[in-house]
Design a protein around this nucleic acid. Structure first.
Lengths: 350, 350
DNA sequence: CTGCTGGCTTGCAACGTTGCAAGTGATGCT
DNA sequence: AGCATCACTTGCAACGTTGCAAGCCAGCAG
């Protein structure tokens, strides 16, 4: 159906090679020939075959972004940033969702089966750990996003979870809250996010000379609204409920918020809330959500840049780039001003 | 870097073709040969080159889902459904975001430049209208999602916007509300969603013997939270503010909700709210959101099925499939029960 | 008139895979 | 022994493109 170079060449009465030269705007084509070929191209509605080009050139111009869940706003917002950054460099991003399924993650990232279509991968693992990733079959470059799961071996962008969690918790302590709880702890070995944030939470309590009360640290299976709502209900059922909660992401916080409000309690008067991720939902909830705001644009920019360097043959040692973050103070811990901002960042070394 | 059939063949001392036969599990290979080849495959870590296969077979196993915005929850949730449906048929979905940019939409859908990598496209247009779409260059099959923008020519899954909007508005009228407003009207010729929903809104008012009050119908540029918040502020500034609002999607409703609550007004006591899309955010807001719930799974299933039929050579006339929808009654218009459900659906013929 | 230069065009091969048809050698039947 | 059959294996060509090097021809200098 689609016209090929050969068909165009026949129609224009020239060789295939010359048509290719016209299509690629190579200079050494006589003006008259170029015009004739161009006419044939237009008449046949020629479109270059991307697959053949890729096979020939070894480059598809496609990079894949592999994420656990697209309907988690943080990932959706990150995706937007990655697409924008890649577009600058002339690359198209395609997104694939793994649901954290180890089988899917492995298929996409490890074997490079489908991956061979893509020049590179930006991968936010959920199930795959460092041990898995170290013996990848595929030679397609990968940049990892997320927690520090891997011991070297691959480029990696991560945020300082411990430091950020400590900052969030300290904020609640400085508000004078006495019983600061945490929602989102995780035991699962492959999911380090929860553990790291718990470390930061505990560090802040210790720094303030407080004890860590075990029943105030609630584990959740996932980081969704439903998990936050359920964990908050447990906290409220305690003999001594908390007066502040640090939720390990904004969805958990929104779920917790829903539970608190449905009990007739007030935020922040009765319970102050801090989230993590700074998704748009949290800016429009009532009350709006105080949260740790990772610099998503920076994360995307660094990830794309790191990947493009590899594609250009950069063979230097794998990089580990930390991303900046700030604490966005909004209504769920504050008065009513929505623009407050505390610095808790770290410079990115490059 | 990656091993090829030829390298494996040399190592195993057989022809390239035989290796291919082993890789593809063709029966007519002697057991002893198969074992030897398999060993060579393993030793070299052979992975088939997807690009070469695609060129040869004319099938990539990839379908593209082209959407305006991934960080709009409705699209994110729809994407999940499409990915699941396509996986059943052994297809991998890659997602591309256009931001409603006509240039990007055209590049992806019309010319098939990049598109040639994909066996088919599921496309939710924002900027491109019927006139554009009719003279596509590419022969890659497309299924359209969304409003009825096109007059024939392409397969299309849409929901009955007029009927759904009428149902939503009627619900508010039946609650006894006197001044029912609407947020999300649009004038732009390429964005029909707003206009169709306004038609349904007006139809419901007329059916109830009410007048349409022009200043109660607020246009918005986009369908984001910020637009809803701003439009609601305008409505509240009217001499006679509304006591009910039908928002043309849930994000608008969540923005409006934020404005209402920040003014100290109550939902639903002072103002009842209905949204559209049934995104997860609306189920966890306080109050939770009454909304029109399109059957996203059904939309995804039909879209994928329609596309797969085309890939299998189905040459029948383009189909227009309506999708089911229901009214989910929640707290923003109701008492407190969250499970109410009114039927307003249409059977899908297939 | 020869030979060289330069502008333009072309054929060949290859990227890695698979369909097709033909090839090989061994076995079995007459 | 001769021939057909069978089980297995192989070479060729092609998918559509582009790098490479060679080819062609006109023009011009010597």
């Amino acid at each position: 159906m689609a016209a090929t170079l050969r068909q165009v060449a026949e129609r224009a009465g020239v060789s295939v090679r010359t048509v290719s030269n016209v299509v690629n705007d190579f200079p050494q084509v006589a003006a008259e020939t170029r015009a004739r070929v161009q006419r044939a191209l237009d008449e046949l509605g020629y479109q270059p075959n991307a697959v053949a080009r890729t096979l020939r050139n070894g480059r598809s111009g496609l990079i894949a972004l592999v994420l656990p869940e697209l309907d988690v706003p943080y990932f959706a917002e990150l995706t937007r940033a990655v697409i924008e950054q890649a577009a600058v460099a002339g690359y198209t991003v395609v997104v694939d969702q793994t649901d954290g399924d180890p089988v899917r993650e492995r298929e996409l990232v490890m074997r490079g089966n489908r991956a061979a279509m893509f020049d590179g991968l930006i991968f936010n693992p959920l199930a795959l750990g460092g041990a898995d990733l170290r013996n990848r079959q595929s030679s397609t470059p990968v940049v990892l996003l997320g927690e520090r799961v891997v011991q070297g071996g691959l480029d990696h962008i991560m945020i300082d979870n411990v430091g950020a969690a400590e900052l969030a918790t300290r904020h609640l302590i400085e508000l004078g809250r006495q019983r600061v709880a945490a929602i989102g702890d995780q035991f699962d070995e492959t999911r380090q996010t929860g553990q790291l944030r718990t470390q930061g939470y505990q560090a802040a309590l210790h720094a303030a000379g407080r004890e860590v009360v075990p029943e105030l640290v609630r584990p959740t299976e996932f980081f969704h609204r439903a998990d936050g709502a359920a964990a908050m209900a447990e906290l409220l059922a305690l003999p001594e409920p908390p007066d502040a909660v640090f939720c390990y992401n904004d969805l958990l916080a929104l779920g917790a918020l829903r539970t608190i409000l449905s009990r007739g309690l007030r935020v922040p008067e009765d319970i102050a809330l801090v989230g993590f991720d700074d998704i748009e939902d949290g800016r429009y909830s009532t009350p709006s959500l105080t949260t740790i705001s990772p610099d998503k644009t920076q994360i995307a920019k660094n990830a794309v840049q790191l990947l493009l360097n590899r594609l250009d043959g950069d063979r230097s040692a794998p990089a580990e780039l930390p991303a900046d973050y700030t604490l966005q103070i909004r209504e769920s811990t504050g008065s009513g001003q929505t623009s407050g901002q505390a610095r808790g960042s770290r410079r990115v070394a490059r």
